[in-house]
Computed example of a mutant assay.
Amino acid sequence: MQLTEASRDTVLKPLTTVVGIVERRNTLPILANVLIRKQAEAVEFIANDLEVQITTRSAFGVGDGAQATTVAARKLLDILRALPDASQVKMSLDDNRLTVQAGRSRFALQTMDAADYPLVNQAGQWDASFSMSQKALRELFNQVHFAMAQQDIRHYLNGLLLVLEPGKVRAVATDGHRLAHAGTALDGQTATLDVIIPRKTVHEMQRLLSDDEQSSIQVDVSTSQIRFRFDHIEVISKLIEGKYPDYRRVIPDGYDCHFEVSRETLQAALQRAAILTTDKLRGVRIQLGEHLMRLSASNAENEEAREDIEIDYPHAPLDVAFNVTYLLDVLASLKADTIRWSIQPNTSSSVLITLTGDDEFRYVVMPMRI
């Protein structure tokens, strides 16, 4: 029985959208599959890893009947990618096998029963709902995502804190050595709620969201789930349970020594200095003096790198070291021409990086010993 018929790109686009969360190794073999559901001309592709589920909806079904099956997601993706761009693709389901035809090419794939596919049970009630532009949400995630922990035993750090306040939404991420904070105004948002979004879900949303200010996204939040709906796509994710650290206590507010520096100039200098650091010791030394910022790095082979940057710095001298990766991460994520450093000389305290004209973005990096 024929399921669908459409151009290769028409089928490839929704499949590519969902296949990103499919793991190559799964405890449940069916999770390596994509669920295909057809009702008349409406076709859904669904992928699920038990933590996050992505659904896409298209209109290239054939016939009036309803059909559903699951097939190896990456196999189907590889087949479609290998077909000529202008191919017309037909998919049919017969005797528990999915047949994919395009011109003189024909593939028969084993399937698994759609009834065995573990779909996410959606929350019965959402505690908060709001809409915003896809670009605004993508930029919010982009400004903080790099500070999330990776496989930390403190599981609540392996995600992003989403803070809802009346008229505002904030995003916070920290791995215990650095903290990134960003926020944006939100019309019509009245709820007060804090939730932790898993790292994988954040990265998938960064991949899927567009930079179009005119394209909106609907976000629904409960205490256990978050749902994103946009562009015929639905993403439902579990939330991480746990008590997130009080980010307000980490962000310093008493620093009275500030200077501005070109983001690109500093980024390029740090990239050059990082060449002579090692994987185990990624430290770069920063010395601040009158109108000068000196960056230096060395390694066990007694090799050294040094860069001088002119700055407007009339304050007391400071000699401190930071993980160069932590500094490069934030510089790569920002679009501003100039960044603002705030420090407290004669202490071994953190540095606060902010943006001129953006009171919401704050990035705190703890010093290190080298």
Rank of each mutant, 00 (worst) to 15 (best):
P166Q: 01
I240N: 05
I233S: 06
L164C: 12
K243R: 13
I197T: 07
Q214L: 11
S237N: 12
D175P: 10
F230S: 00
E213D: 15
L186S: 09
S210H: 09
V202P: 06
S216W: 10
L208C: 09
T190D: 11
S222N: 09
D194E: 14
G167W: 15
A182V: 08
K243W: 08
R199F: 15
G183H: 14
H203Y: 12
E213P: 02
L164N: 00
R178D: 05
Q214D: 15
S224A: 13
G242H: 07
G176N: 06
G176W: 09
R178W: 05
A171P: 01
T174I: 06
D194K: 14
I196E: 01
R229E: 12
P198H: 00
V221C: 02
A182I: 03
A171K: 03
L239Q: 05
G242A: 03
A173K: 03
K243D: 14
S216P: 08
S222F: 13
A180L: 11
L193A: 07
L161M: 10
G188F: 15
M205Q: 13
R178A: 04
D220W: 09
A191S: 08
V195S: 00
A173G: 05
V172A: 01
V219E: 02
I226L: 09
H177K: 10
Q218L: 15
D212V: 03
V202I: 15
A173C: 11
G188W: 10
E234F: 13
V172F: 01
H181R: 15
G176Y: 06
Q218D: 15
G176L: 07
V202Y: 04
P166T: 00
L186W: 08
D187N: 09
V172M: 08
H181P: 09
L193R: 12
G183P: 10
L209V: 07
V235I: 15
S224I: 10
K243Y: 12
F228D: 03
L239H: 06
A185P: 14
D194S: 13
I233L: 14
L208H: 01
R178S: 00
R207H: 02
E165G: 06
L179E: 03
V235A: 04
L161V: 07
D211Y: 05
F230M: 11
G176A: 05
T184W: 09
I196S: 06
L162I: 14
R227A: 13
H181L: 13
R199K: 15
V221R: 00
D194C: 04
E241L: 12
S222R: 02
D231M: 13
G188M: 13
P166M: 04
V172P: 00
L193F: 04
I226A: 05
S210Y: 07
M205F: 07
Q218T: 14
R207T: 04
I226T: 02
D211S: 07
V172E: 01
R229V: 14
F230L: 15
E234P: 02
L161H: 07
I217F: 03
V195C: 00
L162G: 01
I196P: 07
I217W: 01
